[in-house]
Design a protein around this nucleic acid. Structure first.
Lengths: 222, 222
DNA sequence: CCTGCTATTGACCATCCGGTCAACATAATT
DNA sequence: AATTATGTTGACCGGATGGTCAATAGCAGG
């Protein structure tokens, strides 16, 4: 396994820097959890990765699960930070939606942690996430943006009327998520790297087209 | 304790029935792997679930990884069996594609094993899958059907010309997969069960519409 | 009935791993 | 400098866990 080069100055052994230590541990934990999952991750590997005694993990995070929850929260923060809502509004409904789809895809590509941890958390039926509690708010700003774009699109006669925002959000995410989450099995099945730039571009364009085409389409007569 | 009457025929303890034992072990393993993942699964739990001595798992499957590979192959067989290609052709290009999208979604809903094991296998970068080797062929019949539907749709002037089959397959799968794979975290985020029949129906319809709308749309001028 | 053959078992083992703890080090406070 | 508070460490622990093995039991063929 590749040792990540440590950014900047390395924390001096034995020095007292609680915040710095916590950050180093968290970063190392996210790495390890991403690679091995919750059950597969090893506390001493995380400790070594953070250049810290194993006992310190328990001092700061209580338990493996405590560290997992912290890692989860970190990842969800990334998810929130990934969207630039203001920029979307400026593009108008059609291109705004297309861009949102592209951005979502890119976010998952850039952050395998998100995909890996969310997968594992679903294995546990979101037990830790529900314990953490403060998640639902996470999606609100994004949802608000989507609602605005949809409303604008409808008002301009560009979008169909029967769109369910939640479903649309799920679909848009799914289009990007699956491609990244199943990168390896898909690559094995198709006998070619899915992450070659050309293929990425093809897919990204298609995914945007798909969302836009759906929004524009006339719903079948009820 | 007294042997209660057991549901179905239970394998008699100590009796020699290699095939039956293997099947029972495999079924139990798929269950355990689905719930806990590869690292989280426990060999003795699998043994207990199959009503068999732990040693027998190693006799028949060699190791935990050996059992994992067997479980993976089982799951991929489900994936192949999930598609009824002949029926699709009969529906014509548009409705055939829509049906294919619906069926894919339903397959993932009906078989959480598929989703769970594929996720875990991607964590390992498809190492075991590539070792198993015979996977690429799996997708061939499905791809052939998709190609046929696409060709028919193009010939009838119903579909756009620039569709990449592989990308389409990935997109279609992703639309269904994500909804199932992230059932729990999404339900937590939206504070409502994603698997309520009404919501499932809404999403299924939308997903089909999305695929069809894309295929029908006129590509933007190059 | 005897002779292999192998499916099956239960006891056993070596190691791994999350977690604990007493001791120590450093910074802030008095 | 002494006191207090707490960040940090390394040694240690006990239970869990993947895997082994010798012994047994059922089956097939002679």
């Amino acid at each position: 396994m590749i040792r990540m080069k440590l950014p900047r100055q390395r924390r001096k052994r034995g020095t007292r820097d609680a915040e710095g230590a916590k950050a180093a541990i968290l970063a190392s934990a996210v790495r390890e959890f991403t690679e091995k999952g919750l059950a597969g991750a090893r506390m001493d590997v995380i400790a070594r990765g953070a250049e810290v005694a194993k006992g310190l993990l328990f001092h700061h995070f209580g338990s493996k699960e405590g560290l997992w929850v912290a890692a989860l929260e970190h990842v969800y923060a990334l998810l929130r930070a990934g969207q630039d809502e203001a920029a979307l509004d400026a593009l108008g409904p059609v291109e705004g939606m297309r861009r949102l789809a592209h951005d979502t895809f890119r976010l998952f590509r850039a952050h395998p942690e998100i995909v890996a941890l969310m997968n594992e958390e679903n294995l546990h039926r979101a037990r830790h996430l529900r314990a953490a509690g403060n998640i639902p708010r996470l999606y609100n700003p994004l949802f608000a943006t989507m609602e605005r774009l949809l409303a604008a699109g409808r008002a301009q006669g560009l979008f169909r009327e029967d769109v369910d925002v939640t479903a649309l959000y799920v679909a848009m995410s799914g289009l990007g998520y699956f491609y990244c989450a199943n990168r390896w099995t898909l690559s094995a099945a198709f006998a070619g790297d899915l992450f070659r730039p050309a293929r990425l571009a093809t897919y990204e364009e298609m995914l945007g087209e798909m969302v836009v085409a759906y929004l524009r389409a006339v719903p079948p007569a009820a």
